[in-house]
Nucleic acid binder design. Structure first.
Lengths: 202, 202
DNA sequence: GTAACTATGTTGTCAACGGACACTTCTCGT
DNA sequence: ACGAGAAGTGTCCGTTGACAACATAGTTAC
């Protein structure tokens, strides 16, 4: 009555990643064990070796996958909003929501210890932040930035959101403060359309 | 010729913490092994159990220790600067310098998975941020804040610094950008003394 | 002074883990 | 149909964290 598993799983790589994503969500990075994952899937614990030479490679792939998902969230958020300030607001909400609901994954994504997969993770990260930076470039073209260089403005905005999410996740920032802090952040970075004058550089 | 170790170490707890701090700096949190630490010190692998019931307890203690050190750095930074804006600048530099030079420790300090020691870590964290919040309270008294609530202003400032350091550590922010981003952050949060008018809330 | 008490450290054991290797089973192109 | 290589298995090894039982060293009570 064994469910007649074929010898080849079919797409073990995806299955492992998918299961790992669940475990990471529920029990964190330290809860990921190759042996447990493979046992859940029903293969031997060395089977994923072809795809992930070691545990770190799996973590790298998981982080890359996370940036893919984050990227599409940010893309959707930017696309769903009409103007510059609305886009900035929408992106901020999407980013923080993602980082808070996937706190364990986010911790992995922004970890600085990586293995061979580092290059891919970096690339996926860059791609994920594309929509945000693109929005800021448009914002600059419209003269809506309070910081000149749009790259720097975007990265600083990103850093602030990341900091808010991180400090919230580890308990430094109280839960109720988050929304208002996002408000302040959006206000700081996205100047109003009506107001012609912006905070100029000294 | 064995160095005549006494049966009791004397202050094993401090010795373990000290050695663990070195390992964390050099090889990261995942490089910490109770057995290796105890071997280095020259005691049996279960000796620290009295002080740290499990590995997580050691990590918690290490994080708490980290916040103690961060707190004194921030305190010194605040004390060394004359006025509000200088203090904000000084604190920002000290914070980011600490988070970058102790990137592995910082990652541990701001991790959100903790064990029993969570309460102590939270308390130490709160204490560590005391000088920063105090500075912002004085800043508010002098009418120098661009955000009304000094607590929120301080936390948002902190979040931004934390985000800058975190994104720099994991490679998202290029090395050369950090200083200028700190500049922008200080400018955003600490209003000039001369300028009477500040960004008001809508 | 010595006997009990408590804090501190040791030894031995166990299960789980990651990693390495040789081997087997399947798939697919020719 | 068959050979090459991809995909997965079984087994072994060293390391690790946790646990229980035991040993040692100060400390206090009497």
């Amino acid at each position: 009555m064994t469910p007649e598993r074929p010898y080849h799983h079919g797409n073990l790589r995806e299955a492992v990643l998918e299961r790992a994503a669940v475990v990471v969500r529920e029990r964190g990075v330290s809860g990921i064990s190759l042996r447990e994952l493979t046992a859940d899937i029903g293969v031997s614990h060395t089977a994923p070796r072809r795809y992930f030479p070691d545990r770190q490679a799996l973590l790298d792939a998981l982080a890359a996958e996370g940036f893919l998902r984050l990227g599409s969230r940010l893309g959707e958020a930017a696309a769903a909003a009409p103007g510059f300030q609305e886009q900035v607001r929408s992106i901020a909400d999407a980013y923080v929501a993602f980082a808070l609901s996937e706190a364990n994954l986010a911790e992995l994504m922004f970890a600085h210890e990586r293995g061979e997969g580092d290059a891919l993770v970096q690339q996926r990260a860059t791609e994920a932040f594309g929509p945000l930076l693109e929005t800021f470039r448009r914002g600059q073209a419209e003269g809506r930035l309070s910081i000149r260089d749009p790259e720097r403005a975007g990265l600083l905005f990103l850093a602030t959101l990341q900091g808010i999410a991180g400090l919230r996740s580890c308990g430094v920032i109280p839960e109720g403060e988050v929304d208002q802090m996002i408000d302040e952040t959006v206000a700081q970075h996205a100047a109003r359309a009506a107001t012609g004058e912006l905070g100029g550089v000294s």
